[in-house]
Simulated scan of single mutants.
Amino acid sequence: MATYPSPALLDLPKIIMGIDPGTQIMGYAVIEVTGQRVQVLRYDVINLKAFGSNHAVKLKKIFDRMIQLIEEYLPDELAIEAPFYGANVQSMLKLGRAQGVAIAACLSRDIPFVEYAPTKVKQSVTGSGAASKEQVAHMLRQTLTLPPMEEAPKLLDATDALAVALCHHYQKGNNVKAGGKSWGKFLAENPDKMAAPVAGKKAVAARKKPVAKA
């Protein structure tokens, strides 16, 4: 006879990290999903403009910040937007590296990931694969609790990342790649790796706070 997860297990919280890759500005977002309830824990950007043309330093900054976020929020899964293929080959190469570094940071902690095309993300959130960044941000405001509208222009990369995370939630976490462990499971299996109790306390505290503003 077939067995099914209990309702209690189905309602366990899941932490999803969304990433909108960039070589100048990289957006990130962290949401907690419990059943159909979505709580925004944080969304912001990694500003890389200060590093100029030093691409290697930018990649290290991305990796280091990703590890910090993983330690703080203990995500179960990563959702990341696929690069948009344009005419500038060099720009595409750099963007692909930035995306790869973000993925590598999660894989180093055994966190599975899913890649979504930009049109898929927009379609999931707005109903149109051709929606603008402003339209995506507007629709998110109709769905989630976010900071006041006057703060929106500087947060468009962050709201893009939030859209990626929400898109993954709408997909019910299907098609995760490269393993099935969460960072929490990694810590449980490797207690000597970093300070698990400290990281756990940070995550719990973050979940109790209102959404962090950029």
Rank of each mutant, 00 (worst) to 15 (best):
A130R: 14
G18L: 06
G18C: 07
G86D: 11
D44F: 08
T3N: 12
F113R: 05
F63L: 10
S124R: 03
A105D: 06
V33P: 00
T159F: 01
G200A: 08
V89G: 00
I67H: 02
P112A: 07
V204C: 01
I19L: 08
L107A: 07
V57D: 07
M194D: 15
K209D: 05
L107P: 00
R37E: 15
V204T: 13
L187C: 13
K60Y: 11
Y43E: 09
A188Y: 09
Q171G: 05
D64R: 15
K120A: 15
G27R: 01
A178W: 08
A87N: 14
T145M: 14
N174Q: 13
T119K: 10
S53Q: 10
L59K: 06
L41A: 05
Q68Y: 04
W183H: 07
Q39D: 14
T34G: 05
T145P: 01
V40T: 15
R141S: 04
I70Y: 02
E189K: 13
G35V: 00
N54H: 13
I19P: 06
D110Y: 11
A117S: 07
I70V: 13
R141C: 01
S108T: 13
A205K: 14
E115Q: 12
A79Q: 03
I19F: 06
P75E: 00
M17T: 08
I16M: 04
L12F: 09
A131V: 04
G18V: 05
